[in-house]
Nucleic acid binder design. Sequence first.
DNA 1: GATGAATGAGCTTTCATTCAT
DNA 2: TATGAATGAAAGCTCATTCAT
Lengths: 231, 231, 231, 231
Amino acid sequence: MKERGDDEKAPRRDAALTRQRILDAARGEFSLHGYSGGRMDRIARAAGANVQMIYRYFGGKDDLYLAVLEDTYGRIRALERQLDLAAHPPVDGMRRLVEFTFDYLVENADFVPIIRNENVAGGRFAKRSKVVPNTTPPLVAAIKDLLERGGAAGAFRAGVDPMQLYVTVLALCFTHLSNRHTLSVMFQHDLGDPEWLAQRRRHVVEVVCAYLTKGPSEGRDQERHHQPALP
Amino acid sequence: MKERGDDEKAPRRDAALTRQRILDAARGEFSLHGYSGGRMDRIARAAGANVQMIYRYFGGKDDLYLAVLEDTYGRIRALERQLDLAAHPPVDGMRRLVEFTFDYLVENADFVPIIRNENVAGGRFAKRSKVVPNTTPPLVAAIKDLLERGGAAGAFRAGVDPMQLYVTVLALCFTHLSNRHTLSVMFQHDLGDPEWLAQRRRHVVEVVCAYLTKGPSEGRDQERHHQPALP
Amino acid sequence: MKERGDDEKAPRRDAALTRQRILDAARGEFSLHGYSGGRMDRIARAAGANVQMIYRYFGGKDDLYLAVLEDTYGRIRALERQLDLAAHPPVDGMRRLVEFTFDYLVENADFVPIIRNENVAGGRFAKRSKVVPNTTPPLVAAIKDLLERGGAAGAFRAGVDPMQLYVTVLALCFTHLSNRHTLSVMFQHDLGDPEWLAQRRRHVVEVVCAYLTKGPSEGRDQERHHQPALP
Amino acid sequence: MKERGDDEKAPRRDAALTRQRILDAARGEFSLHGYSGGRMDRIARAAGANVQMIYRYFGGKDDLYLAVLEDTYGRIRALERQLDLAAHPPVDGMRRLVEFTFDYLVENADFVPIIRNENVAGGRFAKRSKVVPNTTPPLVAAIKDLLERGGAAGAFRAGVDPMQLYVTVLALCFTHLSNRHTLSVMFQHDLGDPEWLAQRRRHVVEVVCAYLTKGPSEGRDQERHHQPALP
DNA sequence: GATGAATGAGCTTTCATTCAT
DNA sequence: TATGAATGAAAGCTCATTCAT
């Protein structure tokens, strides 16, 4: 029944392209539904392929998901390197980092859900990955360099831990997106609202800068309150 | 495996108890696997009941999940009210709030995953709930009161938005837990480590206090950088 | 917690009444949904009782269904006996029987579904019943008597089989009710329409009377056509 | 149990064949057990397939059932058209229709249960179908043509409603099959007995012909009894 | 007599995955 | 390379039925 011409030599479709379309579709699917909620056939359909192609190109759901995860980390780390923080004065560099992180998470709407969903999965796939741990040290080093230069110049307080600082920056840029739905219900206000996001961007930059540029609170206060807050 | 004391007088057929056991088991299950990953039979087994009891007492997976979610919000909001922030001086009250939030999220290990998973589910259930939006306004009011009293006394900077501040507090206490797995792989360091948590607690309190007690940066800087950070 | 007076001697409820309410509810349920589609809890709720009462009074779903079935046959046979066909002239008696059957099936809307559903169940319960076969012979005898008196008087054709005749009467009164839904869709006309029912009542009586009062077609024709109608 | 010839060349993987086997198996299952009593896994097993194939080819239980129902109506209506009633003299044509209907229902043992079960289901699926109402008008038209030609020729009584007549024909051919089980118990005689069926075939033809060829009863009788039998 | 608690078995449906072409 | 056919495993949910008070 199927009529086929004899010019069947040409590749039906471009393999690399198909692979990429699958990867993109998978990112969208997993960001929307997480690992266990993600459906292979939806990915296939969205990619204009069929399920078996996914198995051919990626091996299975696990491998596909891992590919998406590593791609996600690879992208942001590459752009961060392009910030070239070492070439900027400390205050300026720090602001660049915060603003970049804030903007990247807003503009790349898949990032937050993908990371969040990987944590739902218990980091099962991140642990298996080599990309994730290997691309982080350069980032930490860049932050450390900023903090040390800032500290030496008297612009920043001394003794700030780069890891703590990065977690804080990420937290401030991440949570209103990762928890957008619950927070929107709580506050009865859409946190995706551009107005609100612009306001938050200023707030976040200010929080980080205030912390870094203010002298530390007097030590006596520090420990006085370090106790379980609840009786 | 089943440890049975000889005080087996406790009634096996106690509806309220069974219901509670199911709710507890469901909280554990949904916190570990999310809504779509959560399994009814695992919940039943963990509760020492069987699946049909869940349907009897809760109606279905949706309703059970919603019960868990509302219970989760109900608990933390109730404890927050007990902080009695209005009775404390502003700086002290704010510290209490931050420390309480930090500690509660650490000590109630289900809270973060439950909230995170609800966001994975797109806030589908939170939107359906009356508990979630109704219990938030008192919290916002308490924060607003602290900020206004602090501002009037010159202890806090002026014009801080209560909602932004709460999102910041939550973010600083939430992300190292919600993203613990990926961050632990990134930094090759377990963020559940008590040492690290203690360090972070001090850091978080300091970040919030530094922000509130420092005069705002000069306005000129504010807008100069308000632009897409990426070319 | 439960406050009970000391006049607790009086029977909580009337057993016979409860039993009857269950039976009525079951008739409604089984007539609507058949045996396998019938739900015990719906019956209990409709009877204002609970499921366990059904087990107490009837034993189980099977026994309850059988009770409904026997009750159904018992009612119509009892009313047929009251027609007292032996006391009427043949044509009149036959007309009474047809009209009674037609009207009874219309007015007792549960009859047709119950009988139909029992046939869906393969007559499984009717076979187990003593009521069903035992109440039929008097009916056959009454019809036989009408036919013989009519034949002797020349009013009816001779040699009519009472069983064939009863099946015909039942068929003519039964099918537009038992097949009401499919026929209504086929003809795009509601066969429950009172107008249509009145028209059918006249038609049915006429068909039966015409058959009985007309001399038989010439025998030669009879066998000529007894062949598979399709080539 | 499985009889396999040595001509096992037939492709196991033939979609159309599998689909057909499923449809046939479903017809058998639904005719035996009705919609709600019908079991998907029994159908799959009977079709030599597995349950998922049913979902693949038909979508679900509802759709499968509807396919069976429409197929059932499609078949009989197609054969009725082949009777070519317009080409026969009225009496002959009518006899052909009655005999065809009688024989088809006997020989296609699934037809009666399928239709009966659809009525148990309240015509839920027939209402959703386009096949059922669309294939009926030609049949009505053919009957109308016979009646008019017969009336004009003086062979048939005048003013017979085609719809009433068809319902009567169907009823006379349907009820001893649809109610076979209860009637067999009532009369303590198997109505599936070929002897009895042959006798009924003659009876049914005679009833219809007698009605059509006999002049209507005198009007006085008609209305005298036309009253609501019950107040 | 009446009722809440509990259960075993089964049903429809879905999903990731593999086979054969 | 690409695709239709087929399947094992499980998930959510329901139902008739029994236990214990």
